[in-house]
Nucleic acid binder design. Structure first.
Length: 387
DNA sequence: AAGGTTCCCAACCGCGGAGTT
DNA sequence: TAACTCCGCGGTTGGGAACCT
């Protein structure tokens, strides 16, 4: 473990955090929020650099963190998501409420990679090791984990079976440019993990994407009905260049209702918003005064003209993956409000925390909702595994 | 019991993107 | 437009714990 150059210059502490330091940082952030991280150590009386404080908060002190070992479901989900997202730990973490990217990264490097290898699956490509060793699809490794989408007008996202008789299951766009996901039933039928082969031949950007599904084979999972019969279909057009290339330019009015698992509950500008109350035992059990008036439902972003269906992206794994492929500047679930700093510096401490907590709760709601997305991915995976 | 090895996790490093001046 | 600062991310590593010989 090295030392930040800034730490070295200022002779700041490094290494493990002491309980006293934790307490100082926790007390400071709960009172004032973090604001500018570089100012936190000084304000909190810590001999650490801001970066170190930020990391400590995110990975350890944050009250919404889930502790303990990963469940089998979580592990499976991580594997699934890794197949889609590659080493984008923060985006994977966004799908697992209470888990940090660091935690997931560590789990992957120390445990999951090994498990996959033991099962004959290459953890990088998510293909059978034999296939990788034989040099099949040399481009796969590149395309699988780096969902690097080159410029292009629109996107075709195909989920194909390997069986030519079955024909492709495709989300076909009208463009010659394509993002292709190939799902092989053969590869993972014997695997305890229902991982499908994901083969991205991507040379296009998602902007201007119009995604739809063409079902051409018998499947246990009806993509058309799952994705297109609901209000989901109405969101397809909004997946526009402007959204994907600069998502933060929008201000979708995200109103979280009490039923966070219902898509309808995320109807923008819903009038039936729910005031979120703290449910964390952390908040309930400590001496800080968390409960203040809840701010209005967070208006995160606002689309110019169109209503952004932000939460619906969370519900649709394919759109989510598509958006993620486009390297959105923010995690879809972990929405940071940049004005937070000003808010904290200009508000009373309790209100500041309240706002911070509201954010966390909003994020938590979003994360819970995104769990549906993860489940959708699993369903998709399982479904394609049986094609 | 002691020494060596492996595993796991917390924390640091370095880079790139975004925002500001 | 360049320079600078800040933030967040993925990669890497130090060190303690657990395991093995």
């Amino acid at each position: 473990m090295g030392r930040h150059s800034c730490c070295y210059k200022q002779k700041l502490r490094k290494g493990l955090w002491s309980p006293e330091e934790d307490e100082k940082l926790l007390r400071h952030i709960t009172r004032y929020g973090h604001g500018c991280w570089s100012a936190v150590p000084k304000q909190a009386g810590l001999q650490r650099c801001g970066k170190s404080c930020r990391l400590r908060w995110i990975n350890y002190l944050r009250p919404d963190l889930k502790r303990g070992t990963f469940s089998q479901e979580e592990e499976n989900l991580i594997i699934e998501l890794h197949a889609v997202l590659g080493n984008r730990w923060s985006q994977i973490a966004a799908q697992l409420p209470g888990r940090t990217d660091n935690e997931i990264k560590n789990l992957w490097n120390s445990c999951l990679k090994k498990k996959l290898r033991q099962r004959g699956i290459d953890p990088v490509t998510h293909k059978p090791l034999s296939a990788v060793e034989n040099g099949e699809d040399k481009n796969i490794q590149q395309s699988t984990n780096s969902l690097d989408v080159a410029s292009g007008a629109s996107t075709e996202l195909n989920l194909n079976t390997d069986d030519p008789k079955q024909g492709p299951i495709s989300m076909e766009g009208a463009s010659p440019c394509s993002n292709t996901i190939n799902s092989s039933k053969d590869l993972f039928m014997d695997s305890p993990f229902p991982i499908h082969q994901l083969n991205y031949t991507s040379n296009s950007r998602l902007p201007n994407t119009t995604l739809w599904f063409t079902q051409t084979s018998n499947k246990s999972f009806d993509i058309d009905s799952e994705f297109c019969s609901s209000s989901m279909s109405s969101l397809l057009p909004p997946l526009t260049t402007s959204f994907l290339s600069s998502p933060m330019a929008f201000k979708p009015s995200l109103t979280v209702s009490s039923d966070s698992h219902s898509m309808a509950s995320f109807t923008p500008h819903s009038s039936s918003s729910t005031e979120l109350q703290s449910s964390s035992s952390f908040f309930e059990s400590n001496s800080y005064s968390w409960e203040k008036e809840a701010p209005n439902p967070i208006h995160l972003m606002e689309n110019q003209g169109d209503e952004i269906k932000w939460p619906e992206y969370l519900n649709n794994p394919l759109l989510l993956a598509a958006a993620l492929q486009n390297q959105t500047t923010q995690s879809l679930c972990n929405i940071e409000i940049k004005s937070e700093t000003d808010f904290f510096t200009n508000s009373s401490s309790n209100t500041m925390w309240s706002f911070n907590q509201q954010q966390q709760q909003q994020q938590q709601e979003a994360l819970q909702n995104s769990d549906l997305c993860a489940k959708d991915i699993q369903r998709l995976t399982i479904a394609y595994g049986h094609i």
